[in-house]
Design a protein around this nucleic acid. Structure first.
Lengths: 138, 138
DNA sequence: CAAACTATGCAACTTTGTTGCAAAGGTTTT
DNA sequence: AAAACCTTTGCAACAAAGTTGCATAGTTTG
């Protein structure tokens, strides 16, 4: 586990620090998506809020994590699949938000469908977020 | 126009006030989606921030407007089609966000596709947000 | 191990969203 | 058309979320 974390950070040309390792560990443990505040709560007072913000920013720009659109004002973050590299994401999977337990998961095997758009619109990325009841709450 | 605004408010059992009329007018003018701050800017100091928040909340709960999920922490609001009533929305259309001009539009004629989900997942609503270049920026 | 560089934590601040309450505005009744 | 009634608005004060600059602590490289 620790080796895996180190590997991911080094692959992305990031220095291996305690904060980064611990945040990355949480993402690896917890397969679902997390908002900033979820991460903050996990640490209590052991880590500064600012560090969490900056670490998430760094992970985002390196393509280690990606964001998931939501209808409230929270930003959900989730681990990218291993074949995501800087500037070359594979964010073409469907996301599922459970109305009961509130968790967000990536359905990595369900790819976003092709869509017919009106004339003049050139699509670059398609985001799909399905809400309903998840496997565990059913 | 004024008559139209009055009609919509009365249909939804809302008293016809200046703030509500003016916010609704902006939505009718400006066919695209708007975030809270866009609306605030349009008024300058003529309307209190709190009033904008409360008016949007009211319009949301009555089904006059709906929210559009985003990957940043802003919430986008857009007018519902006229066949939306309280508690019975028709939010099954695709949204398009332009990377160039930043505007968000509802593609009312493109409905969200049916999706095959893994076993145990029960979908209730499907949100689709496409980003790319819009008709005007092409 | 030391020098060079980068990340962290703190403080101060800005922005965004919420709540209670008195005053102003809309609606209804007569 | 005015009074009584109810709802909405604006203000103030607050809470939460996010940002920035800078000194200190931690990491990496030679």
């Amino acid at each position: 586990m620790e080796a895996e974390i180190k590997k991911i950070l080094k692959q992305n040309e990031l220095s291996v620090t305690e904060s980064r390792s611990r945040i990355l560990e949480i993402f690896l443990d917890n397969k679902g998506a997390m908002a900033h505040c979820d991460i903050e709560k996990k640490f209590g007072e052991k880590m500064d809020r600012v560090t969490v913000y900056r670490t998430l920013q760094t992970f985002l720009s390196k393509g280690i994590i990606h964001t998931i659109p939501t209808s409230d004002s929270s930003i959900q973050y989730a681990l990218c699949k291993s074949d995501c590299t800087e500037g070359h994401h594979h964010d073409d999977h469907v996301h599922f938000v459970c109305d009961e337990c509130g968790t967000t998961v990536c359905l990595d095997d369900i790819t976003t469908p092709a869509l017919k758009l009106p004339k003049g619109f050139k699509p670059k990325q398609v985001e799909v977020v399905v809400s309903g009841t998840c496997k565990n709450c059913n």
